[in-house]
Computed example of a mutant assay.
Amino acid sequence: MTCPCGLDKSYDQCCGALHSGAAAASTAEQLMRSRYSAFAVSDEAYLLRTWHQDTRPSTVDFEPRQRWTGLEILSTTGGGVFHTEGSVEFVARYRVRGRAGELRENSTFVRIDGLWVYVRGTIG
Rank of each mutant, 00 (worst) to 15 (best):
T59Q: 14
S75I: 12
W116V: 05
Y46P: 06
T27A: 03
L48G: 06
Y36Q: 01
Y118A: 05
E89A: 13
L48D: 06
D12L: 03
G114Q: 09
T76S: 03
D43F: 00
Y118H: 11
A92T: 11
E63R: 14
T108Y: 08
L74C: 09
V96F: 14
W116T: 01
T50R: 04
S37R: 05
F109M: 02
T84M: 09
V88L: 07
L103A: 09
V81L: 05
Y46H: 10
G80W: 01
T76R: 00
F109T: 03
F62S: 08
V88T: 07
A40E: 01
P64M: 11
A45D: 13
R35Y: 05
S26C: 04
G21L: 06
S10Q: 04
R93P: 11
Y94R: 06
A38Q: 04
I73G: 04
E89P: 07
V88H: 05
R97F: 12
Q66I: 15
D54F: 14
G21N: 07
L18M: 12
T77S: 11
A23V: 03
E63Q: 15
L74R: 13
L71Y: 00
G70Y: 09
V91G: 10
D54Y: 14
F39L: 11
R35D: 02
A28F: 05
S34A: 10
T77P: 03
R49T: 07
P57Y: 03
E44P: 02
Q66W: 07
E44D: 09
V117C: 13
G80K: 07
R111P: 06
S34D: 04
G86A: 10
R93L: 08
H83M: 13
L31W: 04
E29A: 00
